[in-house]
Amino acid sequence: MAKPIEKVMSAPDAVSKFVNDGDNLIIGNYTVGTCMELVFEILRQGKKGFTLYSQSGILDVELLVAAGAVERLVTTYVMRSGGRNGGSAVERALQDGSLQMEDYTNFNYNARLMAGMHGFSFMQVFEGIMVTDLFKKRGFLGEDKYRIIKCPYTGKDVVTVPAANPDVCIVHVQRADKFGNAQYWGAIGSVPAAALASKKIIITCEEIVDTEIIRSSPHHTIIPAFRADAVIEVPWGAHPTEVVGHYNQDKLMYGLFVTAAAGRESLEEWMDEWIFSCQDRQAYIDHYVERFGSDWLQKLVAKPLYSAPANYGSAFHSTWDENGKDRGTGLTMEEIENLLEERGLLHG
């Protein structure tokens, strides 16, 4: 079914419409510029029962797991908030048996998305993995975590991972248009693959821009409009993580989070203050400014550093030359129509 042309909506509407309990949910961002406001909104709405995919977990995964929203986690790396001695929400959930986890390497995880993105049922991965416990110790995917096939060309054993096509991807980008063309730059990571492998895509962006801007720089577009389901303009939508060209990582908020995340109760307090007591990102930012002053926030704002524009020019912009003749045949419109009549090619 065709999607509506314009996809601009609020975060609460997008989450309530496109995120369901029990979904395979994927965090599109990788370590940087993560979709914090969408994570917060999912938690505010109490959505749960997810199988969560994350290339590399930071606050996003910690919060979803701490809230008990995740039953199964597929990832390669998790944040250990409290350092070696402190704990993490993931560690606590594994210990109390409320979370199952499937460990992959960065490449193996990404390969599952690449297969899903391109419509294949599996992807070949590097054979060295066979000697490791990543290959030998299976979680909830069991036999389907990795399977070995014989390469029909070389006869060698080839290790494969199954395709992943998550139900919904949440992702934050720098800019998008109202139709859902989403542009992202900086560390590419697995961001395009995570989005395009998914069945539905919810996009937050620092700014919604005119389509002309998108069309003048198409190489930055990672999600074409026809694949997008929702577009939400959320300035500071990735805070306290960073967004290239917009703001740096906020070490103050990171510090508060990391300190809180070492314990279950302190993390709940942090979540109450910053997620559940703030109805949206504007309220969160207002609360931040109220607590720490607006200059703390302003210190994070990026100074502009533009890439050199790429020249997309061509010799002409019309098939008709300055004398009104078609460049290929050298004929005017009148001459073309006469020719068509002469040759008996016109009907009706």
Binding site: S56, T75, T76, Y77, V78, M79, R80, R84, S88, V90, E91, L94, Q95, G97, D103, Y104, T105, N106, F107, N108, F126, G128, I129, T132, D133, L134, K137, G139
Partner: peptide
């Protein structure tokens, strides 16, 4: 770099492989 203790119910959950296993392999 993955876990200390029982992998499924770890005493200490370390970050995981990330890119490590792939890089040291190739």
């Amino acid at each position: 770099t993955t876990s200390i203790g029982d992998y499924y119910k770890p005493d200490l959950r370390l970050p995981g492989s990330g890119g490590a296993a792939d890089f040291i392999s190739y």
